[in-house]
Design a protein around this nucleic acid. Structure first.
Length: 274
DNA sequence: GTCGATGTTATCAA
DNA sequence: TTTGATAACATCGA
């Protein structure tokens, strides 16, 4: 579910509620959520004051003043929701963090793919999930991007969703970025001309920024930190539009399966050999 | 009831 | 290095 724009929206919507709040306790409801880390780690967060909430790729970091952090990955269906301690938790609630003001942050994840782990704030580089992430696509100079892509080969879309290349792009936005750049998703990136690399870099920024402004894409489960749906589903130009007319040229949008993922593109605007 | 699909990604084999 | 298949799991819609 949540890619960079959704995770960014979640973080922004939660920040006003969380920063400065003091944690009363952390309740783990679904042990496997922690994967290999120990439930006892969570006790250290008791009494901690939230210093900062931030995003890295599709992950969320909650730092407390003691120098500890919680790392959340929402995977397909995870949600982080601000609630009242008095409200009845949703069915698939896996973890709850209660605060002194009576509020509670709840991790809800029907499919159980998501995870939470604790770490030392300064030890981010020791955490494999964070260490292997590529740069943030919105903080990336064109020259750096061009250099990175020159060292790669393989299909354009596969590279876009590769988190060690760029952090945060997933299936929906990869399709939208390829359409915006007028590039076929299966193009070999080593064959891209300089002008195409430029267009790609611009499309990445354009799509991600617009999606953040629209507060993410809500197709099914996705909600921000206060339960509000996003609006970018109204701006999707290829994703989920198989058989419908391309907004640019009226050709029918095609769907194919790339590495197990649905991939949508316009066969006329996005030529194999641009 | 069954089947196939879903926004993620680790892992394995080729 | 890259790719495709598979698995983790629950839900929804045809």
């Amino acid at each position: 579910m949540p890619e960079l724009p959704e995770v960014e929206t979640i973080v922004r919507s939660l920040r006003p509620y969380l920063v400065g709040q003091k944690i009363k306790f952390v309740r783990l409801i679904h042990r496997p959520l922690l994967r290999n880390s120990q439930p006892s780690e969570l006790r250290k967060f008791r009494g901690g004051r939230v210093w900062c909430l931030r995003r890295r790729g599709k992950m969320i970091l909650l730092d407390i003043e003691k120098g500890l952090s919680l790392l959340f990955h929402l995977k397909m269906t995870g949600c982080l929701l601000m609630s009242s301690q008095k409200s009845v938790p949703y069915k698939h609630t896996r973890l709850m963090i209660s605060f002194e003001d009576g509020k509670e942050l709840r991790f809800v994840d029907p499919r159980k793919f998501g995870f939470v782990r604790s770490l030392k704030t300064e030890g981010e580089e020791d955490v494999a999930e964070l260490r292997k992430l590529g740069p943030e696509p919105l903080n990336l100079e064109f020259e750096t991007f061009a250099r990175m892509i020159r060292q790669r080969r393989g299909r354009l879309k596969s590279l876009l969703v590769n988190q060690s290349f760029l952090a945060g792009i997933g299936n929906i936005y990869a399709d939208e970025i390829c359409f915006e750049a007028k590039l076929h998703p299966t193009l070999d990136v080593s064959q891209l001309r300089p002008g195409q690399v430029r267009r790609l870099w611009e499309a990445i920024r354009f799509i991600l920024k617009r999606a953040i402004v629209a507060r993410g894409t809500s197709l099914r489960n996705y909600r921000d930190g206060v339960g509000q749906a996003g609006g970018f589903q109204h701006f999707l130009r290829v994703y989920g539009r198989e058989g419908e007319a391309c907004f640019r040229c009226r050709a029918k949008i095609v769907r194919l399966r790339l590495a197990g993922r649905s991939t949508h593109f316009c066969p006329r605007c996005q030529r194999q050999t641009a």
